[in-house]
Nucleic acid binder design. Structure first.
Ligand SMILES: [Mn+2]
Ligand SMILES: [Mn+2]
Ligand SMILES: [Zn+2]
Ligand SMILES: [Zn+2]
Lengths: 140, 140
DNA sequence: TTCTAGTTTATAATAATTCTAAACTAGAAA
DNA sequence: TTTCTAGTTTAGAATTATTATAAACTAGAA
């Protein structure tokens, strides 16, 4: 119970620190995303199902979109673009890479240390590297 | 002129070899994509403008979509998924990597030899690596 | 308790893409 | 050469993901 309180307070602190007012909806979504010690990948569609399951419509789809964008801008989520016509998001914000299964359309993390780059090109003049990601497409 | 004939015949041969009937539209699009010795990146939107410029509507948008998909399946184009909500395509089908400029939304090739991977993870059981691509996101 | 900027929401709008079904055509066969 | 038909093209409708709008709501400062 104290633990429960703490988690909620942590979330509220986290939101406030990014200038995001801790509304009921944002706290609910943040719990669903950040409460577990395990990270995961999701789409707006799957998050919406998770949040609004068991019939009771708790949070509107528009708010799911708004919140996912706000959390991404705040650096609490990473957007992963590996699938056509649909954005994936990652609660693992550490630098890492992915397997993408073309069949099941599922992402699997590759830990940073599992890939070593011994040669990387210099970016074009006046441009800086923002990030570098490896995607390994797999299939049966 | 002979050269011109040859190019057209090459294209027709290429299409036939993949079971694609060499229609006027496909030959026209193939010319636009494969005639130059330089490879390039494009979207359906930019290809449509290129094909249907100067007012005269030569090929329908649906056919542009159909043809790009057919060429991708046949292995004559690569699909590049780096941008939200829009597919990019590449006439360079050799294994290579990309810079993606978040500002201009432009792709730039990184030659295969410009990146060296000294460690790559084993794919999950029963899965095979289809391809491995590095995307380096850059900005000012 | 009041007030208001920020937020949520239903709904409309947009953008990219895919689907549909009727008209067309490449090219094999007669 | 003409006929035939499966494959292709096309305009337009439908779908899907996403973004915009604007009215109702609420967190939290005063
Ligand atoms: Mn290229
Ligand atoms: Mn889309
Ligand atoms: Zn991940
Ligand atoms: Zn390329």
């Amino acid at each position: 119970m104290a633990n429960f309180m703490n988690q909620k307070n942590e979330i509220i602190k986290k939101l406030r620190s990014s200038g995001l007012r801790p509304t009921q909806q944002r706290v609910l979504i943040a719990k669903s995303l950040f409460d577990s010690d395990k990270t995961f990948h999701f789409t707006v569609e799957t998050l919406n199902k998770k949040i609004n399951k068991n019939g009771a419509n708790k949070v509107s789809l528009a708010t799911i979109y708004n919140t996912v964008e706000a959390f991404t801008c705040a650096g609490y989520l990473k957007e992963i673009l590996t699938s056509k016509n649909k954005s994936y998001y990652d609660t693992n914000i550490k630098s890492h890479h992915h397997f993408y299964d073309e069949g099941s359309k599922e992402l699997t993390d590759i830990h940073h240390s599992q890939i070593k780059l011994s040669k990387v090109p210099i970016p074009p003049k006046g441009k800086k590297i923002k990030n570098l990601e490896v995607v390994i497409r797999i299939q049966k």
